[in-house]
């Protein structure tokens, strides 16, 4: 068997002591998997994604990513470059004034040169059908455009895994269909949190449920 991309071993997390959100969670993400995580509001789905990229640190248990156990901030820096997290609210993710600068932010941080970055920006935007969006002002984009641009900012870093936190939030039917088509065409393994049954069932090839702090397979 190939090494899994992510392996969570007995991970516990609590925002307030004595009220754990996640309780001994074990989860494996294998290459090629598109894993849907279901669960009610406050079940800890977003928390789970944030633990995977080290934005939160588990109270106990370990996160193994890309074959290595990750503990420190420095460990997770590499993880974040290889596992792209798409945030619930695109306004949180798009912080640069223009689209080009926002898409360039990740590659520049990874040490790419300006010329390389420009090529990456153009290629990524074109692959999502966003040609000519370079100089658009991020906060003036529509909801659907913001979503696709925030996906572009993640894809520009060429990640191996995509972590999608409610990607269909506030999208109309048309934008949702377009997003689904794009995501189905991507080679990356994914973890998907989504309340939209149809979207989730079309995209995911495995499903788990988060309930009472524990994961159950369907």
């Amino acid at each position: 068997m190939t090494t899994p991309l992510f392996r969570l071993n007995d991970v516990c997390y609590a925002y307030e002591p004595h009220r754990p959100v996640l309780n001994n969670v074990n989860l494996i993400l294998a290459p090629g998997e598109r894993l849907a995580v279901r669960g009610g509001n406050g079940a800890g789905k977003t928390t789970l994604l944030h633990l995977m990229v080290g934005l939160l640190k588990p109270v106990s248990g370990t996160v193994v990513a890309f074959g290595k156990a990750r503990h420190t901030e420095a460990d997770f820096r590499e993880v974040r470059a290889r596992a792209g997290l798409l945030f619930q609210d695109p306004d949180d993710q798009l912080f640069c004034p223009t689209v080009a600068e926002d898409v360039a932010f990740g590659p520049l941080n990874l040490g790419k040169s300006r010329d390389e970055t420009r090529t990456i920006v153009e290629r990524t935007l074109a692959s999502l059908g966003l040609d000519g969006f370079e100089d658009r002002i991020t906060h003036k984009l529509s909801g659907g455009e913001k979503r696709l641009v925030s996906l572009a900012t993640v894809l520009a870093m060429d990640p191996d895994v995509l972590l999608l936190d409610e990607p269909t939030n506030a999208l109309d039917e048309q934008a949702e269909a377009r997003l689904l088509e794009i995501l189905l065409g991507l080679p990356q393994a994914m973890v998907i949190i989504c309340h939209d049954n149809r979207f989730r069932d079309s995209l995911a090839n495995r499903s788990v449920v988060l309930k009472d702090g524990d994961i159950a397979t369907l």
Binding site: H50, V53, L55, R77, R80, A81, G84, L85, F87, D89, D92, Q93, F95, F105, G106, N109, L110, T153, V154, M157
Partner: peptide
């Protein structure tokens, strides 16, 4: 959240 998103992209 913005800072978290920035960190995710290598900030």
């Amino acid at each position: 959240r913005v800072l978290a998103a920035m960190k995710c992209r290598g900030y």
